[in-house]
Design a protein around this nucleic acid. Sequence first.
RNA 1: GGCCGCUUAGCUCAGCUGGUAGAGCAUUCGGUUUACAUCCGACAGGUCAUAGGUUCGAGUCCUAUAGCGGCCACCA
Length: 733
Amino acid sequence: MDKAYNHKDYEEKIYKQWETSGAFKEVAGKKPYTVLMPPPNANASLHAGHAMYTVDDILVRYKRMLGMSALWIPGMDHAGFETQYVYEKHLAKEGKSRMDFDRKTLYTNIFKFVQDNSGQIYKQFKRLGFCADWDRSVFTLDPQVTKQVYETFTKMHTEGFVYRDSYIVNYCTHCGTSLAELEVKHVERVDPLYYIKYGPFILATVRPETKFGDTAIAVHPADKRYKDWIGKEVEVEGLNGKFKLKVIADNAVDPDFGTGVVKVTPGHDPNDFEMGKRHNLEIKQIIDFNGKLTPIAGPYAGMKVKAAREKVAHDLQQIGLMEKIDTNYTHSIITCYKCGRDLEPLTVPNWFIKVSDLKKKVIQVVEDEQVKFHPKRFKKHMLSWLEIMHDWPISRQIVWGIRIPVWYNIDQNPNLVVIFLDKNKKIVTGETKDLLEKHSLSEIKAGLQKLIAPKESVYEISSDSPGEKYLPETDTFDTWFSSGQWPLVTLKDKEFETRFPTDFIGTLSDILKFWISRMIMFSLYLKNEVPYKDVYLWATVADKEGKKMSKSKGNVINPLELVDKYGADALRFSLIYGTPAGSKVILSDEKVKGMRNFSNKVWNMGRFLKMLIEEQGETLIPEFSASLETSETDKKMVSRLAEIIQIVTQTLENFKLSLAAETLYDFIWHEIADVYIEEVKQRQDKKTGLAVLKHIYLQSLKLLHPFMPFVTEAVWSELGQKDQLIASHWPTK
RNA sequence: GGCCGCUUAGCUCAGCUGGUAGAGCAUUCGGUUUACAUCCGACAGGUCAUAGGUUCGAGUCCUAUAGCGGCCACCA
C-alpha cells in the first residue's frame, strides 16, 4: 500500500469492477427502493449543480446495503427551448439561422447535434461514482415517452382539460419564440414616461405606440376624480383618426401612478390582457411577430416598435397632445434572457390545460404529507405556489420537442397562417386559401416551418396525418409536459405494482413549482397515486463569495477539475459535509482539500492497521466476537460504534445527510484514529486490541462507503476482504 | 407590497422534539516527523441581532423591531 491514497490509481478500476459485477442492478425478491434521476439536458456537460446528485447516490448505496433492491433510473431531457437555442447559436456561427430550414430538416439536424453531444454527461457522472443502472436510461424523445405524452394529451382532451385560447406570451421577436416565466429576465431601466392627452383625460404611458391597440380606458373604482366617467364612452383624438373608448373601473389600476388613468391594450400587455378578460374587451393586434406595427397602426404600419414609439411621441408633440415627458422614470422591463432584447407581449393561439380541478388533488396530498418535503419549509412554498397556479399553456413555438398531435384539414380551415420555404427556398407567409392558388400542398408540406391556426380552427387529434389534405400543428409541447410525466415513463409496466410510488426524488428549489408540482399532478391524474414519497431539496452550489454559480457570472467551477485534483470522494464529501437540505454549499478548493485529507486519513488508518497486524503475525490475531476478552477501552469503543451506527442510520433515514457525514468524520478521525489507535499502539500485547480495532474500522468503512465509495472500497480490499464493500451489509450494531 | 428564510467564536457554518453553547478553517504555543500529501496536543476567542413574553429553565417556543437574502406580485 502506498503511503498516500492516490485516487487516480483506484477510481476508474473500482468503478469498472462495480459495474461489471452488476452491483448497480436491482435484485429480485428484495424490497424495492426506487429513485428517479432528474434528467439533465442531453447536450449539457456536467456543472457543479449536477454534483449534488451525490445525495441520491448516497441514499441508493445506503438502501442497497440495507438489503433492499435499490434501483436508480437515469435519463436525459431534450430540454426544448434551451437546446434549440444552443443549436441556433451553433448555426449562427455558420451564418445560418433556423429560417433557412423547413421544420423537418431542422428537427433532424438538432437530433443529430444532440446525439453527437450526448453521453458525455454520463461519463462524468461515473467519475463521481454514481451508481445508477445506466442500461435503464430514458431519453424524453424515446418512443415510449412520446407514446405516453400522446395518450395523456388525448385523455385530457377527451375529458375536457384541454382547450385553445389566445394567450399573451412574452415573445422575443429576434429569437422568434415565446419565453416561459423561467426564461424571462427582469431588468431595471430608465425610460421616458409620456403624459399624453387622451380625450378628456391625461394619462401616463411608456408605450405611446400601442395606442392603436387600445380598446378601453381604465380607472380605479374608488377614484373620486373619475367616478362620473365610469361606464361612459369618450372620444379620443388619435394620430390615425378619432376613435371611441369605453371607461372601465378595475382594481388593477393604481390610482397613485401617473394621473390614475390608464389606457388598456389587451393585445400587448399582460396586465391589460387580464383586464380585457374581466371586461370582455376586444383584442387588437397592432404588433406582428417580426416586431413591426400592423396595418391597424395606419401610417405607422411596418415600423419597428422602438422607431414607432419615437415617431408617435414626436407626432403627438407636434399636434399638441403631449402634456409632458418625465425623462427620469425607472421601471422594470422584461428582456430575453438569451439575446437581452426587450420582449414583446403578443397574443397567440395556445393550447391550455385547465388546472383548477387537477391541482386540488395536488394541494391535498401535499397538505396530508403523502409527499413530504425536506426541509419542511418547502411544503409551504409549494402550497403557496399551487394556490396561485393558473391554467397551464402547454404549447411552445419551437421545433425541438414533441409535436402536439393535432392536424388541420385545409378545406375546413382556409385561414391557417402558414410560413414555409417554397421550392426555391424562399420564405413565404400567408393564409392557406391564398397560398394554395400558387403552391401545391405538397410543396407547402415539404417546406413547412410554422403554422398558426386561428382559435376557432377545426382539428383532429392523431399522431400521424389523418389524410392527404391535412397540415400539422407545428407547436411542440412545453418541456415540462413531458418531463412532468417522468415517473410514468421511466418505470416499466409491471413495476407500477412494486416500485410505485417511487421513494425519493432530489431537486433544486427553482424547479420545484415547474417540475415537482406537475409530476405530482400527472401522477394523481393518471395513476391516482403520488409519484414519490419524499422530495429532497439539494443545496445550491455557490462560489467563495457565496454567490450562486452561473455561466453568466463566469464563476462556475468544473467539479471534474476538483475530482482530478483531490478525488471523487473528497468532492462528494465536500458537498455533503456541513450542508443541510435546501441550503447553499460553498465549494472552495480549501474545503475539498480538507476533505481529501480525510480520505487520505481513512486510507492511512487502514494501511497502519495492516502493518500492525502483519507485525504481530496475522494468524495470531483472534476473530472478533462478543465473547472476546477485551479491555475497558475496547469495550467502550465497541459500544461507541453501536451508538455511531445508530446515529448514522437514524440521520440517513431522516435525510440529515450532513449530520451523518459529520458524525462519521469526527468518529473515524478523532475517536478511532486520534485516541483509540494511539492507545492500542502503546500496548505491549496488541492482539486483542487489533481484533477489536479491525472490527470497528471495517464497520466504519461500511458506514462511510455511501459517502466516500472509492477510498473505502479500495482500502477494504487492501485489508483482504473478498467481497465488494458496495455489496456488503449495513451494520446493525 | 405579500410570503419565506437567515442573523451563534475573526471567517464558513452545525446545534433534532427547550435544560444555560460546538465543528472546520484562520491565529498563538508546544510536540511528532519510522501510519497519515503531514499529523497530534493545548491556549485563546461568543451577554447565540435587539426588545419584550411564556417557562423552574430558551440559541431552541411566542410577539415586535432592525439588517441581510430568496421567491412571488406590481410597475400601464
